[in-house]
Design a protein around this nucleic acid. Structure first.
Length: 886
RNA sequence: GGGCGGCUAGCUCAGCUGGUUAGAGCGUCUCGUUUACACCGAGAAGGUCGGGGGUUCGAACCCCUCGCCGCCCACCA
């Protein structure tokens, strides 16, 4: 016998172990089976499961389980990301906390060794947390972006792209993070609005004939100024073009140049040019062949290119000093406060500096073209579609991707330098040396590039590197391209776009057929969850509190497209209750001997209730299937919820009761078998979203006397024949339900005592309706709690009439009736009908409507009007009689 | 400055290519120990679909416009 409720705490770990040990997570071997592949967005090894992961991975699991049950070779390939900066940060912090020597003192090799040790101990945390959610990943294929295979893939890609001239070394301005002292890519820069100042500085003309005023928010950069630019057609400055100003503090003469970049509307119209520390100025500098004077070191302190007094000063200190000195020189011409955007490193939070260095770049523009085409052609489809715009927008304006990082944790760049600076790019040191030997004609000492690659470089290869590429493995042949990628919009640029580029370039095929972009989870107030706000919801705690299924169902139900999800506990609680409801329905079935019958064919059932529920089950199965195919997760859960609670529990189980307690043995046998069949179908349909409770019920509602032969996780998905639909049964049960629903409403509004069992007298009904009501008398009797069901031309005195699905009937509540309440009820019903008549009649009186609306819509309205008029007349008659009696 | 998404019941959200009386869950109110379930059952109240204009026989849905809210990209003159 089932317990009263499901106990997730004990059942979940047990069930998960069972699944894992059964081998169900691995794709089936059948070469004929179509494949369905999802590669997990690899979580950072430093991470722990947050609610966003919970959503993202739940959806992946739903899709994977769905595909698996449909007989596909379903592979959900898991793994983790080495997360360069994040991991290096964590271990550095740990070193500091333990009072150890720092990274630099420790040395590169020892430090990296230290990270591997840390990874061995803590790197598996998040993966184990995924198990608690029920994630059915094929753990035997788990990968890590820094494992040997993936590292080999990274080297191969780098070398190949270099040979194709799609990776090159270049000296240009990069976004430099002075905190981590590494270059970062454009998209790792976050523009933050901050309060700042706008200083107006006067630069005296060299010939003493006056001055020119420039405005800046970064006065310290003037130490590296090499020109002042004005617009060529700016009358104010025309005569100054070609002259020089003497740069205050520095004393260097710099030219006044004409360039379109200068905006006459902004500031004074003259702009200082610092090619070494501003992206726009850099371009101006190139156009005019200006010297590039770098005044910052890697830590963003002023270097030796500046006057001695400034050397070693922090940039913000230098800023104050420059302003003070201008003021002292009488050259400060004004200060305004402003709010403006300042670039920050997304990891460090430090203000990023444009800085001139040598870095490795990927020619993203070239790689992007086929990646754009793949989405244009529909080879890869974004879901929801509008994200394609975001993708296109970025891809069409893509800039070279800086992939080198001055870090230690990551893929070391496979480039070696000879003594003369010649670069040998090779997959191994041996190959590099061989190439050097050929180049120099003898052996030479080579020095490997110190830098590592951007973490996203290896992530970009994830869909094929994890399947064994560059080797031509059977996995690669079988599971690539993958089917669906489920991820957040925040990494469309970082990850999705780059996987598209690399995937197409190296395999000729886009890595996914479909990219499903899931929503962002916010708290109940709509605020983004963050540790500092203290509004984070820990998914593991929610699993502890409500069970994994409840959390999964909630996240799935709320993952409507293109929308933030506001997660709140009452919602999760509601879905926990839903599980309990199902559990108890199963318990009811069990108590009534509703056990699956071997060889039972629902096609053969004869009882109306059973034919009806068969058709409804078909409908639900069809709709859930379609919804899951389309990633309409919210629709899928809504259908399941309604079918299970509002149809199976509320109506079918109630209808079954009188049958199961009745005398008709044949009907009992049939209904038991049918109830068991519907329940089994429910368990299957619900399994992808709520795997634990369904698997547990599957086991506990085993065939009579025998355990199940297999687990639900690998049980075939319901594929029901269209012939299960039964319009006649549907119409009949509709009448029964209307009879009961309307009758209940009458009882409630007239305050008929719950215990009273009034007779129900049917006064007007078609022959079919009469037959239906007759055959379902027991069912109506039980659900509406009436005495007898009779057919008489007129209701007895004191009976309360109502209309259900066009049939007129009356509840004989006699002395029980509350007259004023009854009058009010009738008046309300009449008003509703009158309103409907009014609206419909108006529509039908419109000749345009008759002429232009489709005929079926017109007919529909005619019928509607007739029905409403009939109903109104009946109700009026009843009211009149009531008045005469009362 | 460019772009995207949203604005529907007290709250959170559904409403497909325009077509009956705009739905659900939660919350609220009334009633209920009917042997699956109080993590339950029955009933009820509650909405001028952000404002305005237009197209149409007909608009929550299509077009224009305005207003808020959120986000992305660009912007350190």
């Amino acid at each position: 016998m089932l317990e009263k409720t499901f106990d997730p705490a004990t059942a979940e770990p047990r069930l998960y172990r069972q699944w894992e040990e059964s081998g169900a997570f691995a794709p089936i071997d059948d070469p004929a089976a179509p494949t369905f592949t999802i590669v997990i967005p690899p979580p950072n090894i430093t991470g722990s499961l947050h609610i966003g992961h919970a959503l993202n991975n739940t959806l992946q699991d739903v899709l994977t389980r769905f595909a698996r049950m449909r007989g596909m070779a379903a592979l959900w390939l898991p793994g983790t990301d080495h997360a360069g900066i994040a991991t290096q940060m964590v271990v550095e912090r740990q070193l500091a906390a333990e009072g150890n020597i720092g990274r630099r003192e420790l040395g590169r090799e020892a430090f990296v060794e230290r990270i591997w040790e840390w990874k061995a101990k803590s790197g598996g945390t998040i993966v184990n947390q995924l198990r608690r959610l029920g994630a059915s990943c094929d753990w035997s294929r788990e990968r890590f972006t820094l494992d040997d295979g993936l590292s080999a893939a990274v080297r191969k890609v780098f070398v190949t792209l270099h040979r194709q001239k799609l990776i090159y070394r270049d000296k240009r301005l990069v976004n430099w993070d002075p905190h981590f002292q590494t270059a970062i890519s454009d998209i790792e820069v976050e523009q933050l609005e901050v309060d700042g100042h706008y200083w107006h500085l006067a630069y005296p003309l060299e010939d003493g004939s006056g001055e020119i005023i420039v405005a800046t928010t970064r006065p310290e950069t003037m130490l590296g100024d090499t020109a002042v630019a004005v617009h060529p057609s700016d009358e104010r400055y025309k005569t100054l073009i070609g002259k020089c100003v003497r740069l205050p503090i520095v004393g260097r003469p710099i030219p006044i140049i004409a360039d379109d970049y200068a905006d006459r509307e902004k500031g004074s119209g003259a702009v200082k040019i610092t090619p070494a520390h501003d992206f726009n100025d850099f371009k101006v500098g190139q156009r005019h062949h200006l010297p590039i004077i770098n005044i910052l070191d890697a830590g963003a302190r002023i270097n030796d290119n500046a006057p001695a007094a400034y050397r070693g000063l922090d940039r913000f200190e230098a800023r104050k000093r420059v302003v003070a000195e201008f003021e002292a020189l009488g050259l400060l011409r004004g200060v305004e406060t402003t709010r403006h955007a300042v670039p920050h490193g997304d990891r460090s939070g430090a203000v990023v500096e444009p800085w001139l260095t040598d870095q490795w770049y990927v020619d993203a523009k070239t790689l992007a073209a086929p990646a754009i085409a793949a989405v244009e052609s529909g080879e890869t489809v974004f879901e929801p579609r509008h994200w394609e715009k975001t993708y296109f927008e970025w891809m069409r304006n893509i800039e070279p991707w800086c992939v080198s990082r001055q870090l230690w944790w990551g893929h070391r760049i496979p480039a070696w330098y000879g003594p003369d600076g010649h670069i040998f790019v090779a997959e191994t040191a041996e190959e590099a040396h061989a190439a050097a030997h050929e180049y120099y004609g003898h052996d030479e000492d080579l020095r490997q590039d110190e830098d590592v690659l951007d973490t996203w470089f290896s992530s970009a290869l994830w869909p094929f590197s994890t399947l064994g590429w560059p080797a031509k493995t059977s996995d690669l042949a079988r599971f690539y391209p993958t089917h669906t990628l489920v991820t957040g919009f925040d990494i469309i640029f970082f990850w999705v776009a780059r996987m598209m580029m690399m995937g197409i370039h190296f395999t000729g095929q886009a890595p996914f057929q479909r990219v499903f972009i899931n929503a962002l989870i916010r708290d109940a107030e709509g605020a983004k969850m963050s540790k500092s706000k203290g509004n984070v919801m820990n998914p593991l705690e929610l699993v502890d509190e409500y069970g994994a299924d409840a959390l999964r169902f909630t996240l799935t139900a709320m993952s409507g497209q293109a929308r933030d999800i506001r997660l709140s506990k009452p919602r999760i609680e509601g879905y926990r209750n839903f599980g309990t409801k199902l559990w108890n329905a199963a318990r009811f079935c069990q108590m009534n001997g509703c056990v699956a019958v071997e060889g039972f064919d629902p096609a053969g059932v004869t009882h109306t209730v059973n034919r009806w529920v068969r058709g409804e089950t078909l409908k639900a199965a069809r709709e859930v299937t379609a919804a899951l195919e389309a990633c309409a997760f919210d629709a899928a859960t809504a259908i399941l919820y309604r079918f299970i609670w509002n149809l199976f529990c509320d109506w079918f189980v109630e209808f079954a009761k009188p049958i199961l307690n009745g005398e008709d043995e044949a009907a009992k046998v049939e209904t038991r078998a049918m109830a068991a069949w519907v329940l089994e179908t429910i368990l299957k349909l619900l399994h992808p979203v709520a795997p634990f409770i369904t698997e547990e019920l599957w086991a506990q509602t085993a065939l009579e006397g025998r355990p199940r032969s297999g687990l639900l996780i690998t049980t075939p998905w319901p594929q029901l024949p269209e012939a299960y639909a039964d319009a006649q049964a549907e119409a009949e049960i509709e009448l029964v339900i209307a009879t009961v629903t309307e009758g209940r409403s009458v009882r409630s509004e007239l305050n008929v005592p719950p215990g009273a069992r009034p007779d129900l007298i049917v006064t007007e009904a078609t022959e079919t309706q009469e037959r239906t009501l007759r055959t379902n008398a027991a069912v109506i009797g039980h659900t509406l709690r009436i005495g007898t069901l009779r057919f008489e031309p007129a209701p007895p005195n004191g009976a309360v009439a109502y209309v259900a699905a066009g049939a007129a009937m009356a509840l004989d509540v006699n002395s029980l009736v509350d007259l004023p309440a009854e009058r009010a009820r009738l008046a309300k019903d009449i008003a509703t009908q009158a309103q409907d008549i009014d609206r419909t009649a108006k529509k039908l009186a419109n000749s345009d409507f008759i002429g232009r609306a489709p005929p079926e819509v017109v007919t529909e309205n005619r019928e509607r009007l007739a029905a409403a008029e009939r109903n109104k007349a009946r109700l009026m008659a009843i009211l009149a009689r009531l008045e005469s009696v009362g």
